[in-house]
Simulated assay, not measured.
Amino acid sequence: MTEELRGLLRESAEGHLPDRARMLARVERGTARPGTAGRSRDRGRTRTGTRIRTLSWPRIVFATLATAGTLTASALTVVTVVHAPDPPRNPTATAPSAAGRTAPPTEGGRAEDGPLWADGSVDPHSNAYWAQSNVTLKAREPLSALVVELRIALTEGVKDTGGWRTRPAADFDLSTREEGGFLVYRWTLKPGRTVPPGEHVFAGQYDHATGGRDATDDTYRIDATAGAAGSGAAVWGGFA
């Protein structure tokens, strides 16, 4: 609704607002005039003498007030329409944000699934300044797809110093990053490569604050496609 149309409606509404005080004063003056009652009685008769019903002044007052109330309500309705806010023309819908990858489930751990078996351990050669976390995988069938993820909690002083695996480096893509309070190592088998049955180790190496480091919050997860049927399998666990 434009401002010009609002202005026209507002002026129209104000013009219909009755002056209640003026109307009451006019009624009082009419009832106070001398001879009014007589003239009213005379006007109450027709030429044939038939009496016409006339309204007494209290009824006139009540009728006037009722009319004023009706006009006031109508005017207020118009004013309300004038001041009602316009609805938004182009409401913007809020699209839900994309969910990020959740941390792998580790509660209770699952060390074996189909042809896969796995275990997490802190390498015995770790010391007071540096550590290595090993994920040992045993496969009973060839793997045509494999993702190994190692998550090291970012306790004091944790900093990546490298990673390795017992399989050829050319067979895997390795990514290392900090994410959600963890140092994350991820080995992904390249398309067209396979992992033969047997035992394989994937290790992440990192510095840490001087002294013993608590590995309770560290986790791992392995997802693989195994066998000629291409069935999926997943195992996970911790280092506590």
Rank of each mutant, 00 (worst) to 15 (best):
L5W: 00
L9F: 05
L9P: 08
G15R: 15
L17G: 10
L17Q: 06
R20F: 13
R20W: 09
R22T: 15
M23Y: 00
A25W: 02
V27D: 02
V27G: 06
E28F: 03
R29Y: 01
A32V: 01
R33H: 12
A37W: 00
A37Q: 02
R39L: 15
R41S: 00
G44T: 04
T46Q: 14
T46L: 15
G49W: 00
T50Q: 13
R51A: 13
I52Y: 00
R53E: 15
T54P: 02
T54L: 15
L65S: 09
L65V: 14
T67R: 14
T67Y: 02
A68P: 09
A68T: 09
V78D: 12
V79W: 12
V81I: 14
H83T: 12
H83L: 13
A84V: 11
P85L: 10
D86H: 10
A95W: 10
A95D: 03
A98M: 13
G100Y: 00
T106H: 10
G108F: 03
R110D: 05
A111Y: 01
D113M: 12
P115T: 00
P115D: 10
P115R: 11
W117D: 06
D119H: 15
G120T: 01
V122D: 04
V122F: 01
S126V: 02
S126I: 05
W130Q: 06
V135F: 04
T136G: 08
T136R: 15
T136W: 11
T136M: 14
L137E: 02
L137I: 13
K138G: 12
R140W: 12
R140G: 14
P142T: 07
S144R: 11
S144N: 07
E149W: 03
L150V: 11
A153D: 11
A153T: 08
L154M: 12
T155P: 00
G157H: 05
G157Y: 04
G157I: 07
V158E: 03
V158F: 02
D160R: 00
G162P: 05
G162Q: 03
R165W: 06
T166P: 03
T166F: 08
A170E: 14
L174H: 08
L174K: 03
L174E: 04
T176G: 11
T176Y: 05
E178R: 12
E179V: 14
G180S: 09
G181N: 11
G181I: 06
F182S: 04
F182K: 09
V184P: 07
L189S: 00
L189H: 05
K190I: 07
K190M: 07
P191R: 08
G192L: 07
R193N: 00
T194V: 12
T194N: 13
V195C: 03
V195G: 00
P196Y: 01
G198W: 02
H200A: 01
H200V: 02
H200T: 04
A203C: 09
G211E: 10
R213L: 05
R221A: 15
I222H: 04
T225F: 01
T225C: 03
G227K: 04
G230F: 06
S231D: 14
G237W: 01
G238W: 06
A240V: 09
